[in-house]
Design a protein around this nucleic acid. Structure first.
Lengths: 141, 141
DNA sequence: CTAAGTGCAAAATGTTTGCATACTT
DNA sequence: AAGTATGCAAACATTTTGCACTTAG
């Protein structure tokens, strides 16, 4: 979906190194910039955005739009060549804002159903389920 | 989730009248502003945004964040007092951008599963399934 | 009369872009 | 040398907010 970088640059390497330290976590472009700033060697934010976008295109990162107002967040999935996509669904609580990762085989049914009955190939990397989490349901009665 | 209006104003009435002419369609704040501008009697955009937000809070409108870069869109569902929530899922094709409305009983299973197994009460009004639609799948081979 | 709503212009926010410079190959 | 990448600052687009004014109850 996106162009992949042709050149190996210092910034790109540093970015990847950083990402490897936070696998499976959700980080924003801001987080990344901040990390480098605190390292004493900032990387320009345009570069960060551009590289991040490239890495999404290469399948190294997943990108999630969790919330209309929050910044997009990225999740390191694997080094560019390895493994299939780590299937993981996300649930976002509209009340407390908590983000729940669901590694659930049964949810595969959803994909099958959508594909079989509706011809729609679901992309779990971009799909976020909104709703109310257990804790908040009990709290509200 | 949001405050509901206490006062009945001319702007609010006009907005609701307009919405009633586009049931089930997806309209943006911009569309609304435009409609009134062309009516010769514009309504301030802040007012539009605020009223729209109120109506979402009242359940009259659904609000969807279809896309990170696109404006939020609203869908008129019912007049404030009537009926239960019109259950309708949305699928957004990442390729062609098409938005598909799914009125599907079987998708209720998803809700049951999430609720039963994960304690998560899915909100179909805010959830959008991303993926690739049938046409685009065939096109790409 | 008081609380709520309106509308303008300005702020906020996350992301993208133009462009001159620097780096990779 | 040619093609990319970088980084700054400025541009962007949507939504929100501050505030003085109007309107509904």
């Amino acid at each position: 979906m996106n162009a992949r970088p042709k050149y190996k640059t210092k910034q790109r390497d540093r970015l990847i190194s950083y990402l490897e330290t936070v696998p499976g976590q959700h980080i924003t472009a801001f987080d990344v910039c901040e990390a480098f700033r605190q390292d004493g060697a900032p990387i320009g934010q345009s570069t960060v955005y551009r590289q991040l976008e490239s890495l999404v295109g290469e399948g190294v990162l997943n990108k999630y739009i969790i919330d209309e107002k929050s910044p997009a967040c990225f999740e390191y999935v694997r080094s560019a060549s390895h493994q299939g996509p780590g299937t993981c669904f996300h649930c976002k609580c509209e009340k407390c804002g908590r983000l729940i990762h669901l590694h659930c085989e049964e949810l595969e049914e959803i994909r099958s159903h959508l594909l079989g009955e509706h011809g729609f190939r679901l992309d779990p990397r971009r799909t976020v389920f909104y709703g109310i989490c257990e804790a908040c349901q009990q709290a509200e009665g």
